[in-house]
């Protein structure tokens, strides 16, 4: 835990199993406001499973969470979003046949309320969607085109835009740059920096150790569902992280 700061999010004894598969075992984790916490680990280490618990997408099999000092139990992603926790999922969670604007504003539509009816404000959603994508240096000619016709990187930008749309103060990103080109990756990294500068808290899952070293303030490493490392990033080189992931523990002497 970083010195003196009280954590905005704390996990205690979180476990998640899918039938016989123990994906996450007894993880304690503290995230402080303004932290960029990187979660690393091999494929299948349980990173996505852990953040699905934090984002309300999956209930934990055991353990408790505390958010801003209050115990929380997310029954659905809706609960988490309401409490300011937004997530970009590894598989992006888009609706392929719906448009860019519809995907960006899914579940958080811009509306005009007349009586008890919320009428969609489509023009504004298209404009705003364009603006969100612009922040990621992705420009698409038409916000009405279906997401299935976009490139992988453009889709990723749509998924990121949706998370930004919630204006959440904890943002979880599960491999947000996986499908991105060099330029877009740089934009996402910049975005993480600006979120941090904004005072927001970012939990970042990445397999790119250079990105992790460049962005993160802390790193947690999972190995077969267990947390084996949890420390500030200071003094670590990408190679050290790689070694720790492979050996499943801290490197002697660091």
């Amino acid at each position: 835990m970083s010195e003196a700061a009280t954590p905005i999010l704390s996990l205690r004894g979180i476990s998640k199993s899918y039938g016989g598969v123990q994906a996450v075992s007894d993880v304690d984790l503290d995230v402080c406001r303004g932290d960029v916490l990187a979660i690393c680990g091999d494929n299948g280490a349980g990173k996505s499973s852990l953040i699905k618990v934090i984002s309300g997408a999956q209930p934990p099999s055991a353990g408790t969470m505390t958010l801003r000092g209050e115990p929380v139990r997310f029954g659905s992603p809706h609960d988490a979003l309401q409490k300011g926790v937004a997530t970009i999922y590894q598989d992006l969670a888009l609706a392929p046949r719906l448009s860019v604007a519809e995907n960006v504003f899914m579940g958080a539509e811009l509306t005009r309320r007349v009586g008890f009816v919320h009428w969609l404000d489509k023009a504004r959603m298209r404009e705003e969607a364009k603006r969100y994508l612009g922040r990621l240096s992705v420009s698409l000619p038409d916000m009405r085109q279906p997401v299935e016709r976009l490139s992988g990187g453009q889709r990723q930008a749509v998924a990121i835009s949706r998370a930004l749309r919630w204006n959440a103060d904890i943002i979880i990103m599960d491999e947000p740059t996986a499908a991105l080109g060099v330029r877009e990756t740089a934009q996402v990294l910049d975005l993480v920096r600006s979120l941090k500068a904004d005072g927001r808290t970012v939990i970042l899952i990445s397999h790119n150790m250079r990105d992790v070293v460049a962005l993160a303030s802390r790193v947690a490493i999972l190995s077969r569902g267990r947390k084996v490392v949890d420390r500030p990033i200071e003094g670590l080189e990408p190679d050290d992280l790689t070694h720790m992931i492979m050996s499943g523990g801290e490197r002697a002497g660091l």
């Binding site: 992603p77 809706h78 969670a93 888009l94 392929p96 719906l98 519809e102 969609l120």
Partner: peptide, 25 residues
């Protein structure tokens, strides 16, 4: 076509899990 409920119904039908993850009931 024009209401929020309609948009959420369409999203639910098109991609139920994505809609759920986006906070739609």
């Amino acid at each position: 076509k024009w209401t929020r409920t309609g948009a959420r119904m369409v999203a639910t039908g098109e991609a139920e899990e994505a809609a759920r993850l986006a906070g739609i009931a």
